[in-house]
C-alpha cells in the first residue's frame, strides 16, 4: 500500500483576468480514493486540477495537501518559497492529456529524469528504477524507444510510469485518454485501475463515464466554474437531482449511442 495523501479544497476562486473560472469551490478528496471530475468543456475541470499542484495559481481560498497549504505561506498571504513548492510537487504525480513526454529522451530516460534531478539519485540506480516502473506498466520491451517511436497508449503509460516512479502520494490525471485512439484507451485505463487498487489517491478529469462509474469512489460535477454536485457514482451518474447534471448526462448518452 502506498502512503496516500488527502486534499482539502476550501472556497477556492480563480480568475483569468476578468473571467471567473472557479467559484468558491469546496471539495474534500479522501486518501486512497479515486475522485473523478466531470462536466462540460470549459467548466473549469483542468483549472481546478491544476490548482492542486499549483501549476495554476488560485486567487483566494485554500488548497491543502495533507493539511499543508500549497502555493502560499498563509491563506491569502505571500507565495511559498520555490523550494518548498518543488518539494510538495515532487510527491504529487501529474499525467497530462498530451502526455508531455520529453521528446529527446528515451522512455527510460524520461522516467529516470525526475529521480536524478529531483530525488538526487545516481544515474544507474535511477535507470534501474525506471526500468522497474516501465515493466509495471507493461513496457519492459520499449524502454529504449523515444516517444516518437511509441503509440499514444504507450506514451501515456510511460507518462504514468514517470509520475509513479517518484513515489507520489497523490496522482492527478487531466483527461489521460482523450488524445488516444479508441482502441488504445483500455490499456491506459487498466494501468490507472491497478494504481487505484493499490490505494493511490487519484483525481481524474475524464470524459470516460464508464471509468467514473466503475472505478471512482466519488464524482464531482462542475459547470461554469461551479461545483454543482459531489456524490458516489451510483447516485450522481444514475439518479442526479440537479437538472444541469441530468442534461449533461443526457447529451453524453446521446453522443455515445451508436
Amino acid at each position: 500500500m502506498v502512503e496516500a495523501s488527502s486534499v482539502e479544497i476550501r472556497k477556492v476562486n480563480k480568475y483569468y483576468g476578468q473571467f471567473h473560472a472557479l467559484k468558491d469551490i469546496d471539495l474534500t478528496i479522501p486518501p486512497g480514493k479515486v475522485t473523478c471530475l466531470i462536466g462540460p468543456s470549459g467548466s473549469g475541470k483542468s483549472s481546478l486540477l491544476r490548482c492542486i499542484n499549483f501549476l495554476e495559481e488560485y486567487d483566494s481560498g485554500e488548497v491543502l495537501i495533507d493539511g499543508q497549504l500549497i502555493g502560499y505561506e498563509t491563506p491569502g498571504g505571500r507565495r511559498m518559497a520555490p523550494r518548498r513548492l518543488r518539494q510538495m510537487r515532487s510527491t504529487i504525480g501529474m499525467v497530462f492529456q498530451q502526455f508531455n513526454l520529453w521528446p529527446h529522451m528515451t522512455a527510460q530516460e524520461n522516467v529516470a529524469e525526475g529521480l536524478i534531478r529531483v530525488r538526487g539519485m545516481r544515474k544507474p540506480q535511477a535507470m534501474e528504477r525506471a526500468a522497474e516502473a516501465l515493466t509495471r506498466v507493461g513496457l519492459a520491451d520499449r524502454m529504449g524507444n523515444h516517444p516518437s517511436r511509441l503509440s499514444g497508449g504507450q506514451q501515456q503509460r510511460v507518462a504514468i510510469a514517470r509520475a509513479v516512479a517518484m513515489d507520489p502520494r497523490l496522482m492527478l490525471f487531466d483527461e489521460p485518454t482523450s488524445a488516444l485512439d479508441p482502441e488504445l484507451v483500455g490499456e491506459v485505463l487498466n494501468v490507472m485501475k491497478a494504481l487505484a487498487a493499490g490505494g493511490m489517491t487519484m483525481v481524474v478529469v475524464t470524459h470516460e463515464m464508464g471509468f467514473a462509474a466503475h472505478v471512482a469512489d466519488q464524482v464531482a460535477f462542475l459547470e461554469a466554474g461551479e461545483l454543482v454536485g459531489v456524490d458516489v457514482p451510483s447516485r450522481i451518474l444514475r439518479e442526479p437531482e440537479d437538472p444541469r447534471i441530468q442534461s449533461f448526462l443526457r447529451t453524453y448518452r446521446e453522443r455515445n449511442v451508436i
Binding site: N53, L55, P82, R86, Q87, M88, R89, S90, I92, G93, M94, F96, Q98, N100, L101, W102, P103, E113, G114, R117, V118, A159, R162, A163, M166
Partner: peptide
Amino acid sequence: PPGLIEAGRAIGMTELAIVRRI
C-alpha cells in the same frame, strides 16, 4: 510546447534544471 516545461515543474524540477534539461 509549454506542456514539456509543465511536466518538469509538476515533477518538482528546478527552473535551472528545466532550462538545461528540457
